[in-house]
């Protein structure tokens, strides 16, 4: 019976047509993982604030550098995407938008909200600079 276990096991993604819903679903996990990296930057930031002005200045220098800004922008988007798609998940949990059409429409609304909130956060940040 050993050969019987060689049958293809789910998920065998290669046989599915690529759909928006599966990309958005995959992005939820990818952005969630991205948030873990952002958590390290957050930890550095708050620990430096406790250590003192010099340590805090070092973090601010890093965040203000091109790599730091890119990292921060990525983190903002990951936060907003994961937040908006998380709300979508919560709505599904109470039975809202779980038909195919609802999932497609909700997906696009969610992407719009995530991009909008990301841009808004950066407008607030740049305006305060």
């Amino acid at each position: 019976m050993a050969h019987a276990t060689n049958r293809p096991l789910s998920p065998h993604l290669s046989i599915y047509k690529l759909q928006v819903s599966m990309i958005l679903s995959g992005l939820h996990r990818i952005t969630g993982f991205g948030l873990l990296l952002g958590t390290l930057l957050f930890a550095w930031w708050i620990i430096a604030a406790a250590v003192g002005p010099r340590a805090f200045l070092t973090v601010q220098h890093f965040i203000g550098s091109p790599i730091g800004l890119l990292f921060l922008f990525g983190w903002t988007f990951c936060l907003m995407y994961h937040l908006c798609n998380g709300v979508r998940h919560l709505l599904w949990d109470i039975g809202i938008g779980i038909e195919i059409e609802g999932i497609k429409l909700g997906g696009w609304i969610m992407v719009g909200c995530a991009v909008g909130l990301t841009v808004l956060a950066w407008i607030v940040g740049i305006a305060s600079w």
């Binding site: 601010q60 203000g64 903002t76 936060l79 907003m80 808004l120 956060a121 950066w122 607030v124 940040g125 740049i126 305060s128 600079w129």
Partner: peptide
């Protein structure tokens, strides 16, 4: 996010 964004460069 929206509170700390106001501290950019502060």
């Amino acid at each position: 996010v929206f509170t700390v964004a106001q501290f950019a460069g502060a």
